[in-house]
Every structure is written in structure tokens, then in C-alpha cells.
């Protein structure tokens, strides 16, 4: 599986998409912005372009001719997606720390980039994975409908959660108000987000393995 991950990183993915998280991460420096959008760029730009590249280069048939199992092919591809997602979120989190330093007295209209917010972001990535990965592996090369469905779901999620954050005083207090200073609460939300991300991604991977196993190439 390690060789397959290296294959994707060396052949399939343009180095630009490994540099993009650093560039997109700087968007965290925009004061009082909707920071959910920072991760959305990964869905809008990186995912369609990377999967278009796999399709254009006949990666599926290329990989099938080599001595690798179908299960490892899926696991490696999911690992690559997770690596990119983690790269995006961790770099955005680091830029988020600078945001607090740059604008210490900012009153946030949307979610401020506290740890709890990143927990919500992990849930957004989880929603993307649970829809995109199994849908993609219905064919293992068509990514359009899988990307459309998964991106739409994440948009609905972040719009709803952000709306609640504005409209509902409890949610607002938890993420931007007094709750933001409660470190244990913030860490708990972050951990719950990471757990949801892990569970959804493992579930997505096992559904994809089953679907890909049945596929005629």
C-alpha cells in the first residue's frame, strides 16, 4: 500500500496541490471571515483537478496491471485524500493562530478559529468523505457526480451550522462567547470532530472496498 501512496504522490498529484494548502491557508488571515470557506477550496479546486488527472492518465488500468490488491488500491487512495485533508486543515489551524495574534480585539460575526471550530471542520471533512469516496468507487473513474453530491452536502452543513452560530445564542456562546475560553470544552469538541472524521472515513473506505471489489474494469 505504501508504494501505491507514493505512486499517487509522485505521478498522480501535481506538486501544486501539495503547495496549495499553504496558499489557501493564508485566507485565514482575512479578518472576520467565514473560515469554513478555507477548507471548501480543497473540495472546489484540489479534488476535481486531482481526480481528473487520475482519469486522464488512465491510472485505474495502469494500477490494475501491477501486482496490487484492489483493497490496497482503495486504502491507498483514501490515505492520499486524508493526507491532503490533514495538510489543509493543519495549515489552516496554524494560520488561525496568527489570526488571533494579528487581530486580538476582533469581534467575530462568524465562527472564530478556536479549537471547537476546527472540530466542526473535521465533521465537514467527514461528511465529504462518507459521500465522495463510496460514490466515486461505483465506477472508480467518474468523479463528477460524487464531487457534486459531496460538495453540496458540505455546503448545506456549513451553511446550517454557521446560521445556527449566528441565530442561536447557545451555539454562539459555545464557539465565540464564553465557551471559547473554556479550553476543555473546546478540546472536547475538537476530539469529537476528529473521532467523527475517523469513523466516517473508515466507513467510507470499507464501503468503497466492497464496491470496487465487485467492479469490472
Amino acid at each position: 500500500m505504501y508504494n501505491l501512496v507514493i505512486k499517487d504522490l509522485k505521478l498522480g498529484i501535481n506538486p501544486w496541490f501539495l503547495a496549495l494548502p499553504f496558499l489557501i491557508g493564508t485566507l485565514m488571515l482575512i479578518p472576520n471571515w467565514i473560515y469554513f470557506l478555507v477548507l471548501q477550496y480543497f473540495f472546489w479546486i484540489s479534488v476535481p483537478n486531482i481526480f481528473a488527472q487520475f482519469k486522464a492518465q488512465n491510472d485505474l488500468v495502469f494500477t490494475m496491471t501491477m501486482p496490487v490488491s484492489r483493497k490496497d488500491m482503495v486504502k491507498a487512495r483514501v490515505t492520499v485524500i486524508v493526507i491532503l485533508e490533514l495538510l489543509h486543515i493543519v495549515i489552516a489551524m496554524i494560520f488561525g493562530l496568527f489570526t488571533f495574534q494579528l487581530y486580538p480585539d476582533m469581534t467575530y460575526s462568524f465562527f472564530a478559529p478556536h479549537m471547537g471550530f476546527w472540530g466542526l471542520c473535521f465533521v465537514m471533512l467527514a461528511i465529504f468523505n462518507i459521500i465522495f469516496i463510496p460514490m466515486f468507487y461505483k465506477t472508480a473513474y467518474k468523479y463528477g457526480s460524487a464531487a457534486t453530491a459531496s460538495i453540496t452536502a458540505t455546503l448545506l452543513y456549513f451553511a446550517s451550522v454557521q446560521w445556527l452560530g449566528i441565530q442561536n445564542s447557545f451555539v454562539f456562546e459555545t464557539f465565540n462567547g464564553n465557551g471559547a475560553d473554556n479550553v476543555s470544552l473546546q478540546i472536547t469538541i475538537l476530539i469529537v470532530g476528529i473521532v467523527i472524521f475517523t469513523v466516517f472515513t473508515i466507513a467510507a473506505c470499507s464501503i468503497a472496498i466492497k464496491r470496487f471489489g465487485r467492479l469490472d474494469i
Binding site: N3, K10, L11, F62
Partner: peptide
């Protein structure tokens, strides 16, 4: 009739492929 990773150099492709064998 099918080409794979046609924009890659021979040595890049070989370095990836040989690890599988």
C-alpha cells in the same frame, strides 16, 4: 493503445513502477 502518465519522464515512471516488483 493506452498510455499512462504520458507527461512523466521514463525514469520517473520506472522509479515508481519498479518498487512493486
Amino acid at each position: 493503445s493506452i498510455d499512462f502518465y504520458t507527461r512523466s519522464k521514463i525514469k520517473t515512471l520506472t522509479n515508481v513502477i519498479k518498487k512493486f516488483y
